[in-house]
Simulated scan of single mutants.
Amino acid sequence: MLTANIDGNRSRPIPSAVGVCPFCRSEMVPRCGEVRIHHWAHKSKANCDPWREPETDWHRNWKNEFPLSWQEKIFQDEATGERHIADVHTLSGLTVEVQHSHLDPTERRAREEFYRNMIWVVDGSRLKGNREKISEWRNTLVEISQGQSRTNLFLTDKAEELFPNDWLECPVPVCFDYMGPKGDVSSAPQVLFLLYPGTVHGGRLVEPLPRGSLLRAIFAERVDTSSVRSVTQRVARLRLSNRRR
């Protein structure tokens, strides 16, 4: 984790300090070496959030793109008492969950049901085959034009040939980052791929965009549930004859 409580206040890791996990209240120790991003670790295996898993520096870097007050937000379902830690939760109410390792579909659906208004940022570099799939994206995706203007929105009827199949049925947006901890900088795409939920004109809607553009979209509240729905509805109204590569 990137934060722990010290004397009741959230804190970044401080060498030699003793922290307390804000979720399970167990003792945490700072990891402030010269190689990995500074973080907190549970002193012993604690009964913490069952959705918690070991984090890579890629995961921590994504969380650090957002203000400290948005990171590692604790949620509790008032009806059931169920509690979990979201990677990032914005002021507008959008939860950002960052995922590197394989995630069982049952748990993935449970998280989506729990957070509802959310977006996934997924490590697309985890398996070599995933990078190979996306390498020919320019020949597979068809860009949509509106009048004389390009939209940077693309349709594909071959999503299963481009993206990891485990994520195709998500009811929320999924952003694939192919520059993850196992990414090959020389061959991985320099853009992210935002896969919109559902189908439009029988295909899937994809938006390639730089990392900074995704962050600006999150800060500007352009990838929450209502905004994503508006985009897909707008594309659904467009005539397919206006598509272009």
Rank of each mutant, 00 (worst) to 15 (best):
D177Q: 10
D77H: 12
Q190P: 00
V174C: 09
D177C: 10
N9C: 09
P13E: 02
I14D: 00
F219V: 10
L153K: 00
M1Y: 10
P105N: 11
F193D: 01
R216Y: 08
R245N: 11
R239L: 09
D104I: 09
E78W: 08
N130F: 15
F114P: 02
F75G: 07
E113G: 08
D87N: 12
L205E: 03
L127H: 15
P208C: 08
Q146Y: 14
E82R: 15
L68I: 13
G183D: 06
S227H: 13
R229N: 14
F163R: 01
H39W: 06
Q71H: 08
E143F: 06
R108C: 03
I119W: 01
S69Y: 12
I134A: 04
T80E: 07
R83T: 14
T225K: 15
L192D: 01
P181F: 05
L94N: 02
R131C: 10
R138K: 15
L155E: 01
L2Q: 03
M179A: 11
T106R: 14
F66H: 09
R116A: 13
D7A: 12
W40Y: 09
E53M: 06
L91C: 05
Q146F: 13
A79S: 13
R216H: 12
A86M: 04
P30I: 05
F154S: 00
S26I: 00
D104K: 13
C21V: 06
K128W: 09
L195N: 01
I144Y: 02
T232W: 04
S149R: 15
T90C: 09
P54H: 11
E143I: 09
L209F: 04
S213C: 04
R108K: 15
V98C: 05
R229M: 12
S11F: 03
H100S: 11
Y178L: 04
P197T: 10
C48E: 02
V35L: 11
P208Q: 10
P171V: 04
D123K: 08
F23D: 03
T151K: 09
N64E: 12
R216G: 02
G129L: 07
R131Y: 01
S26E: 14
S241H: 11
V98H: 00
Q190C: 07
V172C: 13
D224F: 01
F114L: 07
L162E: 00
L91P: 02
L209W: 03
W51Q: 08
L168F: 06
H38K: 14
V96R: 01
V88E: 01
R83D: 03
E27H: 09
W137Y: 15
E107C: 02
L94W: 03
S16E: 13
A220L: 10
C48Y: 07
M1W: 00
L214V: 06
T151D: 06
I218S: 00
F219H: 14
N47L: 12
G183Y: 05
E160V: 08
R111G: 07
A41Y: 06
D77W: 08
P173N: 09
D184Q: 12
S230C: 07
A110W: 01
V206R: 00
R237Q: 15
G129I: 04
V122F: 01
W167K: 09
N5V: 04
V96N: 00
S11V: 04
Y115Q: 10
E53H: 14
D224I: 05
V200C: 09
N5P: 00
T156W: 06
M179V: 04
M118V: 07
G147H: 06
V191T: 12
F23V: 03
